[in-house]
């Protein structure tokens, strides 16, 4: 009994820790004061009204969406194939290759941005979006490879073996046995990749250009001297958007199904 109570207490404290900054930002978006205060002073929706008139923020939101969807799709597909191959193939230098695939995460992302920017200019590729997609795919790939890879380790091999003994074709084993088993991990990867891309500041600093400016960079360059309530309003809408995304995923794939059979 005691472990159970302390577990609940710990979870409650963790939730406060997780949600604290969020509460301040959301509260700050409704304040009447000219800067974010906690607790908020009064209640107003004027910052949202102000935000709605900003076409630049809307454009940046669309840029970020396009980028995040493209990068997430590319990273999920490439990463899942690589994770499957790494789990199955047993070649010399596999661990080194695995470590190599993690490298986008361990190289300073700002420098990756500078290096990629330079390379793209060198090739005279006139699209900053392409550079952003390559950069974002690279930094989200390690999340996919690690998450899917971990699920493959835990995968009950006897299941696939049994299927093979029963004469199932490899493709069938993949799609009917392996894929359903790693589906939760793939969904988690999609969530990670999307969110990491959507909130990416550091790699984007040098890769955004006049033709494309992501929302985090828009916010970064907009803030001159303080987090004003309009920025809090943008953040609040983004939080709402991301929650809707999670709910949408749940409706579409059934998170309870995807995150296990209990419940």
């Amino acid at each position: 009994m005691i472990p159970r109570i302390s577990l609940s207490l710990w979870t409650t404290l963790t939730l406060i820790f997780l949600l604290g900054p969020l509460v301040i930002i959301v509260g700050g978006s409704f304040t009447e004061a000219p800067h974010v205060t906690f607790p908020p002073e009064g209640f107003t929706l004027k910052w949202y009204a102000q935000l709605m008139e900003r076409e630049d923020f809307l454009e940046s939101f669309i840029d970020s969406m396009v980028l995040a969807v493209a990068a997430t799709a590319a990273a999920t597909i490439l990463g899942t194939i690589a994770a499957l191959a790494l789990a199955r193939e047993n070649f010399k230098g596999r661990e080194a290759f695995r470590a190599f695939l993690m490298s986008p995460l361990i190289l300073p992302t700002v420098v990756t941005g500078v290096a990629l920017f330079q390379f793209i200019r060198l090739l005279e590729i006139p699209s900053n979006m392409l550079g952003l997609i390559i950069g974002h795919t690279l930094i989200t790939l390690p999340y996919v490879i690690r998450t899917v890879g971990a699920a493959l380790v835990g995968l009950d091999k006897s299941l696939a073996e049994a299927a093979e003994v029963l004469g199932a074709k490899p493709a069938r084993i993949l799609f009917q046995v392996v894929m359903p088993a790693i589906a939760p991990a793939i969904l988690v990867s999609v969530i990670f990749a999307f969110i990491v891309s959507f909130d990416q500041v550091t790699i984007s600093i040098f890769l955004t250009g006049p033709d494309v400016m992501t929302l985090p960079i828009r916010i970064y360059t907009y803030i001159e001297f303080a987090i004003d309530p309009m920025i809090a309003a943008v953040s609040t809408l983004l939080i709402l958007f991301a929650y809707l995304l999670v709910v949408g995923l749940e409706r579409a794939f059934g998170l309870d199904k995807v995150f296990g059979k209990k419940g």
């Binding site: 669309i62 840029d63 396009v66 980028l67 493209a70 590729i125 900053n128 997609i133 494309v212």
Partner: peptide
């Protein structure tokens, strides 16, 4: 949006 999509197709 179209410009962004074009970027994807770039």
């Amino acid at each position: 949006f179209l410009a962004g999509a074009a970027g994807v197709a770039a």
